[in-house]
């Protein structure tokens, strides 16, 4: 008698695991793609310093 006979339950659990893995992979791909688009389009760029003053505050 083999102990490795697959129960129908194992097929269902494997399906759930594969589904979850693919969902997480898709989530990573979407967030990565969205970040790349936002960064390359300059959505996160800091405002330009037009007055010619130092960008950071002089603490001295």
């Amino acid at each position: 008698m083999s102990f490795r006979t697959e129960h129908e339950l194992h097929r269902r659990r494997r399906g759930r695991n594969v589904g979850l893995a693919l969902t997480l992979a898709a989530f990573i791909a979407v967030i990565f793609g969205l970040t790349m688009v936002k960064v390359t389009r300059g959505d996160f760029a800091l405002p330009q310093n037009t007055a010619g003053a130092p960008a950071t505050e002089d603490v001295n």
Binding site: H7, L9, R12, G15, R16, G19, L20
Partner: peptide
């Protein structure tokens, strides 16, 4: 209990 255990498509 096992017979009614959900598949991925049930959550979908």
């Amino acid at each position: 209990q096992y017979e009614t255990e959900a598949e991925f498509r049930d959550y979908f």
